[in-house]
Amino acid sequence: MNRNKKHYLPFFVLLFIHSSLLIYTFYKRKDRKLLFITLLSGMGICFIFEYFILSHLKAYRYKPKLFKNKDLDNFFGAIMSQAVFVPFTAIFLTAFKVGWKGKFLFAMFFGLVEKLFLFMGIHKNNWWKTRYTVTLIPIFFYIIDFWYQQLRLGTPIFHFSSLFLGVLVNGLNLMYSLSIFRKFRFGLEKWHSWEEHFKIAPIYSFILSAATTLIIKDNSGWKGICRSFGFTQIMDIMVLRTGIAKQNFRHFVINNAIHFSMIFWAVLLKRWIYKDVPKQNEKANIEEIKRASI
């Protein structure tokens, strides 16, 4: 088998399959906002998991050969596999209340895909084992089931955590997208490698997302928006003066577009989580009571 050819096609085939599951889910279900918030939470959990397992512990490496740079290529494959395919599937299973047998079958599907990727040279395990994948994915499916139910019940810690994770997903997606277009790069040494960038950039996003969440949760009006934006400016000055970011990081239009996008996204998510979803749940509960009384 020619291992030098491009291997990105299977990723786009899987993207079509799992996106179809997601589209079908949102088409069939009425609680779309609740499912979307749960999806963002699941993607956020996967981003955090992937940050430690891939960036620091180097459990495996992806080789889709879509980008010339190996680190960019690796992170593209990881994000698609862990932060897109798995959460998309989890939402489908949660929405239609698929039991343990269905969850096990999908876990086996992901295990078989991993084995196929290993055979094709698209994926390489360092210390990771396929059995870890087959074991951990069903656990993640049950976490999403539980998360969805807690959001329906209005558990405060899950509301707040969903707001944080939703903001984080948006921030990380923007950061990764701009990294691909080489708009900026983080690092600790004089030469900022892509490996360093993918270790440090998420920390920057974590801090910004946490601060934005806390501020907007407290006040989502113009006062909160201005406070959030002020914090982003302080963060940008700090990473520039410490040399963590290169000078081209301080691009007025790009930087502020990222920051305002995160802030206004946080405002919208807060409204959905704390206002729209509870009302949606009340309507759903009333409908369930009516059906039970017939």
Rank of each mutant, 00 (worst) to 15 (best):
residue 262 M to K: 12
residue 283 K to L: 12
residue 85 F to R: 01
residue 238 M to V: 14
residue 256 N to I: 00
residue 136 L to S: 13
residue 18 H to R: 08
residue 189 E to W: 15
residue 223 K to L: 14
residue 200 I to M: 02
residue 149 Q to V: 09
residue 177 S to H: 11
residue 145 D to P: 00
residue 223 K to V: 09
residue 32 R to Y: 11
residue 213 T to H: 12
residue 215 I to T: 06
residue 280 Q to S: 14
residue 290 K to S: 14
residue 195 E to S: 10
residue 123 H to A: 02
residue 191 W to A: 07
residue 291 R to C: 03
residue 66 L to T: 00
residue 257 A to Q: 05
residue 284 A to Q: 14
residue 55 S to Q: 04
residue 54 L to I: 11
residue 212 T to M: 08
residue 215 I to Y: 03
residue 238 M to G: 06
residue 184 F to R: 01
residue 273 I to W: 15
residue 149 Q to K: 15
residue 271 R to T: 09
residue 66 L to S: 08
residue 45 I to R: 08
residue 25 T to M: 09
residue 32 R to L: 01
residue 53 I to Y: 05
residue 159 H to F: 13
residue 100 W to E: 10
residue 262 M to I: 07
residue 66 L to D: 05
residue 102 G to H: 06
residue 275 K to Y: 04
residue 157 I to C: 09
residue 220 S to Q: 13
residue 149 Q to F: 13
residue 258 I to D: 11
residue 293 S to N: 14
residue 145 D to T: 05
residue 264 F to M: 12
residue 111 G to F: 06
residue 183 K to I: 01
residue 199 K to V: 06
residue 231 F to V: 05
residue 186 F to R: 04
residue 102 G to T: 03
residue 91 I to S: 01
residue 156 P to G: 11
residue 157 I to S: 14
residue 1 M to E: 14
residue 154 G to R: 07
residue 196 E to N: 09
residue 249 F to Y: 15
residue 227 R to V: 08
residue 249 F to H: 11
residue 134 V to S: 04
residue 273 I to A: 05
residue 260 F to E: 00
residue 151 L to C: 13
residue 240 L to E: 00
residue 259 H to V: 00
residue 129 K to V: 09
residue 250 R to V: 04
residue 119 F to D: 02
residue 287 E to K: 12
residue 82 Q to G: 05
